[in-house]
Design a protein around this nucleic acid. Structure first.
Lengths: 179, 179
DNA sequence: CTCCAGTGGAACATATGTGTTCCATAACGG
DNA sequence: CCGTTATGGAACACATATGTTCCACTGGAG
């Protein structure tokens, strides 16, 4: 089925490029278990594949944000939920974090609704007195993403389980943002 | 002078590759203000340049570690000093953080003396009761580097000053590692 | 002034990735 | 059974990065 191979290619591309941003289309094809020509059928040029990845990751982030319901309940708990959802993005998270220029389409330059939601959540926490008001929201946003990145990196080179890594990430984050 | 151009090439290479890991030697040459052939005179193959960068960054990290005197004084203050020194590494820090595979020579696989020093400093802090003993030292090491990375990233896309960024970084780190 | 180490640039060969075309073939539904 | 559809692979042209060779130029040391 068309949609099925397309997904296989996108997933393989995210996995491959997150490990080596300079990987060739042959590498992606091999990882996806399809021929190189098949990739060109779905994405005529390399740049088409790249932007498709960008859109895909963007959609995943938006969906994760929605699932976390960032405007509901105490800010700290909402932040926990958001991190747990983002954490599940896995490779896509690494890619978005370390390859800004790789995935930069028009949509990434401007602030995305998900970015906005996180910023507002942090500001809400600051208003509630639950989150340190001395640290600017955009800095904390940076910290959230880098701790999530650290969690996956920790899994990769310390062989920790996903559960352990998420636990360390959340604990560190809670302490860092605490009022 | 020989040594002078060599430094110019290395510095330009770090600056260029930290912004775009896939940059060509022509790009590096242009950034260094030298001809492409000159680069080949100093580093016959691309891989020679890469390993030279690896060694260079490694030396800078070692020197920064030594300057911070991580075994002296209270652990928290020593950690502050270490972060300030590492922060000054600038582009080299970004490169080491985001391009593990780019800079991976034989020397990076094994734990470097600088890695060891940071781990021991954290463990000393835990023994002193100044650093959270629930968080493993190798995780905190990861956090230190990713917060330093975040600081530079924050400068890049929020236009913050070095001083501001370092302040945010240190404040966040202190809270995250606090017992 | 003369020599020469260091350099920049042109020109070239080579390798690798990219994009296209064409054909054979397997899968699937009518 | 036949035809449509999706695919893999070979072959090709093309672009770009790499590595090499050669030559001309410059600035400083003698």
């Amino acid at each position: 089925m068309r949609a099925r191979t397309r997904r296989a290619i996108l997933d393989a591309a995210v996995a491959t490029l997150s490990k080596d941003p300079g990987a060739s289309l042959s590498d992606v094809a091999a990882a996806a278990g399809v021929g190189r020509t098949t990739i060109h059928r779905y994405f005529p040029e390399r740049s088409d594949l790249i932007t498709a990845i960008g859109n895909d990751v963007l959609e995943r982030i938006a969906a994760a944000t929605a699932r976390a319901r960032p405007t509901e309940g105490p800010a700290l708990q909402a932040l926990d939920r958001l991190c747990q959802e983002y954490f599940e993005l896995g490779d896509g998270l690494m890619l978005a974090f370390t390859e800004p220029q790789l995935v930069v389409s028009d949509m990434w330059e401007e602030e995305t609704p998900s970015d906005r939601a996180l910023i507002e959540l942090i500001e809400r926490g600051q208003a509630e007195g639950a989150i340190d008001a001395e640290l600017p929201a955009d800095w904390m946003q940076q910290v959230v993403w880098s701790l999530l990145y650290s969690a996956w990196q920790h899994i990769r080179d310390s062989g920790a389980s996903k559960h352990e890594a998420l636990g360390l990430c959340l604990r560190s984050l809670r302490k860092a943002v605490a009022a």
